[in-house]
């Protein structure tokens, strides 16, 4: 996502909506807590990736992953 500001707004809005609605549908409080602890690092990673990609860094890990998988894994 090359547009840094917009992608950060999108991530923040979705994260906020997620946290604000947590536990509102009568779920188990312990389970909700566990899910929150899972989602915090995921959101942190997404924000970090937003910033890196937004600053114009091109990671292009697909071809590197393909190289790692090796040509014998090429099926299609």
């Amino acid at each position: 996502m090359p547009d840094l500001l917009l992608s950060l707004i999108l991530t923040a809005a979705i994260a906020a909506a997620d946290f604000l609605t947590a536990g509102k549908d009568g779920g188990d409080a312990k389970a909700e807590k566990r899910l929150t602890w899972f989602s915090v690092p995921v959101y942190a990673f997404v924000i970090f990736a937003d910033i890196v990609l937004g600053l114009g860094v091109q990671l292009d890990l697909g071809p590197k992953l393909a190289e790692l998988l090796g040509p014998w894994m090429k099926i299609g």
């Binding site: 979705i14 779920g27 899910l35 899972f38 989602s39």
Partner: peptide, 8 residues
């Protein structure tokens, strides 16, 4: 609930 973070 993980749909939000998984989607992003």
């Amino acid at each position: 609930r993980p749909a939000a973070c998984c989607g992003l």
